[in-house]
Nucleic acid binder design. Structure first.
Length: 563
RNA sequence: UGGGGAGUCGUCUAGUGGUAGGACAGCGGACUCUGGAUCCGCCGGCGGGGGUUCGAAUCCUCCCUCCCCAACCA
């Protein structure tokens, strides 16, 4: 869809709304809403929905409401209400003073139901849920009318009143719309509007023992709030005729429902039911486990609101069911963090390096830029001494081609410090494991510059042993393994047993000593790491790897191994 | 099988009768005190068959594939 004014293209939802404005519908007003049920934590799929709703309203100077669709007290909880509000705000959206609950409308909904009953368009049905199912027919066969379908209006009003008064047990009766039991659309086969549920509601307490269903609630709530465009996900497409039916029969303000495709992400699952299962069965530590695609999980992992917003923008909005490659989300995070994350040195798997010709007790301070992408980020001082840690992976006794790091006789640069050459290797006599490297440094290379201009390809990160701060580092992999066959394996079989690996004894530079939880850094040459907001403490730092850096060497060595 | 939706590079997504473009991924190169970043390049697609037209991803038609619906969940 090309926008003639800007030359940029817009998605079909925005195009429809633009058309409504052009034709003068709703006096050009745009009012949307995000209607989550508080029965779980929000994930990135929900973020697609609410960012769409909030953004579209904002683009037209309109408003977007937050409305909790709390019509099923059995599934809902205030814990979820709170987390949902926190997550929406975190992503940067604001519903102002328009916080609503479907339960706020229970009285109005009851009156509207009475209106339908009085017009002969709804009836109290005594069929059990099993019987209702049988009477409904199947996908290919029409249903049959309920024997209670033709009760008098007086009887319906009386029975409905008594349902509300609590005279009947759970499931004993329902209020149903009187539409068409032969409709090819199952949603129109006399759908249930109210069920009896003697259960406490997290907001209305025990005031009600009948609860309206989603279909009976949604359109009327939209109408009451003056919502112009009710944007929802595509599985509600064949509910739209029912949405429209209620509004038309009631003769009240009629918003327009528009459906778009939900978001799916490779390597994870975006279904509340399954996420809840992961939590309940202990496959993750909670809704905010850093491996979870929930907003609280992504936040804990180190994802930034900006990166998620950019991701959603790039993903677009359409009606095609699509699975987005997780690599795109990761790309958006790197892109954002590259701009804003302070650089820092941390050695994940330490190997001692002794610089033999460096004075024993000397400590030098080197200035290090906090972010080469952002001169305004300033610099910090790094202590250097005779014994430092480098990454174990940065040394190979017998290096392959194109390996630019440390090896016997090789010279590399210790970032910001000196050029050092590996002179010998110390090993554990019993195991043969390399325990220490003995090196010499070039005193003329202070700051890392070769005095004679000689080229040194390898630059390593390091931490001075005497100044290093120990830390735990958690690395994450996808929750789900790639689905090899054509979805032959079940969800549980695809769970990645190695989605979490914990590294202890990592050594980070001293400037991180009093870093605050939730802050994200780039560990030079390693990736972006966020201080865990739950488990990290001063003196016992815990970092989560949000995403690795692009690793060209990993690709080269993999290709070499393949030969 | 009835109804409702959807099919464009590996993955997303533009396109609305006039040269199929972009992003991510992949591959190659330049540059680099992060094998990062940046820059340049390459790769690769209209589900299929008919038809209309000077011309079709786009219009018509038949077919194929995938998703959703038979909760008193949302």
């Amino acid at each position: 869809m090309a926008d003639s004014e800007t030359g940029t293209s817009v998605d079909f939802v925005r195009a429809m709304i633009a058309e409504d404005i052009r034709t003068g519908k709703n006096d050009g007003r745009v009012h949307t809403r995000f209607p989550p049920e508080p029965n779980g934590y929000l994930h990135i799929g929900h973020a697609k929905a609410f960012s769409l709703n909030f953004s579209i309203a904002a683009e037209h100077g309109g408003l977007c409401n937050l409305r909790f669709d709390d019509t099923n007290p059995l599934a809902e909880d205030v814990e979820y209400v709170d987390s949902i509000m926190e997550d929406i705000r975190w992503l940067g959206y604001d519903w102002g003073d328009r916080l609503y609950y479907a339960s706020d409308y229970f009285d109005q909904l009851y009156e509207l139901a009475l209106q339908l009953i009085r017009e002969g368009k709804a009836f109290v049905c005594d069929l059990t849920s099993d019987e209702v199912r049988h009477y409904r027919g199947t996908i290919t066969e029409p249903g049959r009318n309920s024997p209670y379908r033709d009760r008098t209006i007086e009887e319906n009003v009386d029975l409905f009143d008594r349902m509300r008064a609590g005279e009947f047990d759970n499931g004993r009766r329902t209020l149903r719309a009187r539409i068409d039991m032969a409709s090819p659309n199952m949603n129109l086969r006399d759908p249930v509007m109210y069920r009896i549920l003697h259960a406490a509601h997290h907001r209305t307490g025990s005031k009600w023992c009948i609860y309206p269903t989603y279909d009976w609630t949604h359109g009327q709530s939209d109408s009451i709030e003056g919502v112009t465009h009710s944007i929802c996900s595509i599985e509600f497409e064949d509910h739209r005729p029912l949405y429209d039916w209620y509004l038309d029969e009631l003769g009240i303000y009629h918003p327009r429902q528009i459906e778009f495709a939900r978001l799916y992400l490779s390597g994870t699952v975006l279904s509340k039911r399954r996420l809840l299962q992961l939590v309940n069965e202990g496959h993750v530590t909670g809704w905010d486990d850093a491996r979870m695609p929930t907003l609280s999980g992504l936040r804990r992992r180190g994802y930034t609101p900006a990166s998620i917003r950019e991701f959603l923008k790039r993903v677009g909005v359409a009606k095609t069911e699509s699975v987005i490659d997780m690599a795109l989300l990761e790309h958006c995070l790197r892109e954002d963090l590259n701009r804003v994350a302070p650089r820092v040195m941390a050695v994940l798997k330490p190997l001692r390096v002794v610089i033999d010709n460096y004075p024993d007790d000397k400590v030098e301070m080197f200035s290090a830029a906090n972010n080469p992408e952002d001169p305004g980020a300033g610099s910090r001082e790094l202590p250097f001494s005779k014994v430092v840690y480098v990454e174990r992976d940065d040394f190979l006794e017998d290096p392959p081609r194109k390996f630019f790091r440390l090896a016997p006789g090789r010279e590399v640069r210790l970032k910001h410090a000196y050029l050092v050459t590996c002179e010998s290797v110390v090993k554990d006599e019993a195991t043969g494991e390399v325990t220490e490297l003995r090196c010499t440094y070039d005193p003329e290379s202070r700051g890392g510059e070769a005095p004679d201009g000689r080229k040194v390809r390898g630059t390593l990160h390091w931490v001075s042993v005497g100044h290093a701060v120990p830390a735990e580092v958690r690395l994450f992999d996808h929750l789900l393994l790639p689905d090899d066959g054509e979805g032959k394996k079940g969800f549980m079989e695809l769970l990645n047993p190695e989605s979490l690996s914990v590294l202890t004894g990592c050594m980070v530079e001293p400037s991180l000593c009093d870093a605050k939880p939730g802050r994200t850094y780039q560990f030079l040459r390693r990736g972006y790491f966020c201080i865990d907001s739950v488990d990290s403490q001063a003196g016992a730092l815990v970092f989560n790897r949000a995403v690795s850096l692009r690793d060209t060497w990993a690709r080269i060595s993999k290709a070499q191994a393949g030969k």
